[in-house]
């Protein structure tokens, strides 16, 4: 059964709409997942620093940085570049302070990173405050 032009056009529109919505949903899920992964490593770093186990903190931090470097290109394509730059700056500051074993500054940067990650995820969510 051959569909008319308008029927095919309508079907095409529905397909494009579904694909676009699926793509948007998938990117939201991806952002959330990578943010959660990074947050896990940051929690490990916090725990290690509290226990003054700097080598363990450094290992967790390096794993977090590796994960972030993999996710970064996708984040740049999906979010505002300033958000990504903020996280970059905070991570590099954290790495520097961790190397110098400055506990207070490490905790400050960890809090800042948590905030930036949460902000990046929240700003992408569908809710009333983001809509307006």
């Amino acid at each position: 059964m051959r569909l008319g032009y308008n029927a095919r056009l309508s079907l095409g529109l529905i397909v494009i709409t579904v694909l676009t919505l699926a793509f948007c949903w998938q990117t939201s899920v991806y952002i959330e997942k990578t943010a959660d992964n990074l947050a896990v490593y940051l929690t490990e770093v916090r725990g290690a620093v509290q226990a003054e186990d700097w080598p363990a903190a450094d290992r967790s931090l390096q794993q977090g940085l590796t994960g972030w470097q993999q996710a970064r290109p996708f984040w740049l394509g999906l979010l505002n570049h300033q958000d990504v730059i903020n996280i970059d700056l905070a991570l590099h500051s954290l790495a520097a302070f961790a190397q110098e074993q400055r506990t207070d500054e490490v905790f400050n940067q960890l809090s800042l990173l948590d905030y930036y990650l949460k902000l990046a995820v929240e700003s992408d969510k569908v809710n009333l405050s983001n809509l307006f």
Partner: peptide, 18 residues
């Protein structure tokens, strides 16, 4: 604006076209 992803322009254009 180089700082915003291209998707921020492409997706609205596609949405409006549809």
């Amino acid at each position: 604006s180089n700082g915003t992803p291209l998707l921020n322009s492409l997706l609205p254009i596609i949405t409006i076209t549809v």
